[in-house]
Design a protein around this nucleic acid. Structure first.
Lengths: 204, 204
DNA sequence: AGGTATTTCAACACCGTGTTGATTATTGTT
DNA sequence: AACAATAATCAACACGGTGTTGAAATACCT
């Protein structure tokens, strides 16, 4: 039982390369299987033996990226050492997305898939929300809900802008900005005077 | 020259009603003109005399919604009285979207159009950014850029959640939450202790 | 080299598309 | 009420992409 045939890997690679290639100048809804196979240089029947349609292809590509993402996130969250600050975790996330930039730029781009961003958010959600929940006992569940909705979407928004600008800023700097905005809101633009007041209350 | 034929308005109404109806349980990419016309109860040729395809229909619907949106926003931004607080403006925005809920729920929903949300953001952008720019002289342009990317996407995220939950929370409360998160970040969950420190610095 | 798995190729019926021209129905105007 | 103009309907059409088939060719792994 050969778990990975060389031909299959080549074929999938060709398909995916052609897919991201086409997706650069054309929205996904106007990509046909025929066109994809022509630019990939493979037979149309071969495509159908791996995917059911274009959207199935996209879903599967996203799936694999998310697995990478989760795998990269795991060690960051497990290590409970004192030098594992929230900023480092966030930086790790940015770094991971930078490494999968080819997929992320299209799937998070203007023609991208909203559901993908939503799933990206959900992964972080479970890990963060409970520590927030436990900590901010004064806050209502609804407030927590909306706070999370805001900051998660906000991070994605920052991420999209980052990818759109070619990721010139370092992952660490991005993480630092994201962290500060989440912590201090607009105070982020005024420096970090409020930092010390909040620091000791923040859950690790 | 009859500027508005009764038949046309009826037809368009039927089309749009059927469109939002179908969009409730199915992504836009799998909606065919044929299916749309059948549920709308009109001839397929009639559709093509008004729109070129499904996406053209969506774009035109969004267009009209955005005009409404901009019109509703205008008076809020023009009035420079002291009782026109940022919260009231934001509340006005939420209220406007609530009134166009039928379109917004689908176009901002999981199967919605990313570009629509992006345009919604851009409308507010020009108005807000310059006042931020003028005020936060210490901040770099890039920081401003990313701050705006974060909070605009954050507001949309909150909005999506709001629409998804049936808009039970009042527009004012939503606006208040959004405002506080933008201002104080996670401090929002801890009450408003930091409020006074920042207030006098915030641009009207 | 062997048998197996994958890709290729041509062909097929099927369905939605976008357009056409003729016909019918509805509108605003006189 | 009668008119011309406009809009909606209908049937029909060519076109192109879809998804599947079976046989032949090719590449893989041991």
């Amino acid at each position: 039982m050969p778990k990975s045939d060389h031909r299959i890997r080549v074929t999938k690679m060709l398909i995916r390369r052609a897919f991201t290639e086409i997706l650069r100048n054309k929205p996904i809804q106007s990509i046909s299987v025929k066109e994809l196979c022509e630019t990939a240089g493979i037979n149309r029947g071969t495509f159908y033996s791996h995917y059911t349609d274009i959207y199935d292809l996209m879903k599967k590509m996203e799936e694999e990226m998310l697995e990478d993402f989760q795998q990269a996130l795991q060690p960051l969250l497990e290590v409970h050492e004192e030098d594992m600050t929230p900023v480092k975790i966030t930086a790790g996330i940015f770094q991971c997305l930078k490494e999968n930039a080819d997929i992320c730029t299209v799937t998070l781009g203007p023609f991208g898939d909203k559901e993908f961003a939503a799933r990206l958010i959900r992964i972080g959600r479970d890990n963060y929300v409970e520590s927030y929940q436990r900590f901010f006992k004064g806050a209502t569940p609804r407030q927590l809900e909306y706070y999370y909705a805001f900051v998660s979407a906000g991070c994605i928004g920052m991420l999209e802008r980052w990818l759109a600008e070619g990721m010139h800023t370092s992952a660490e700097e991005m993480a630092d900005m994201a962290e500060k905005i989440m912590m201090y809101g607009i105070g982020f633009l005024r420096g970090e005077k409020a930092k010390e007041e909040v620091k000791e209350d923040y859950p690790v």
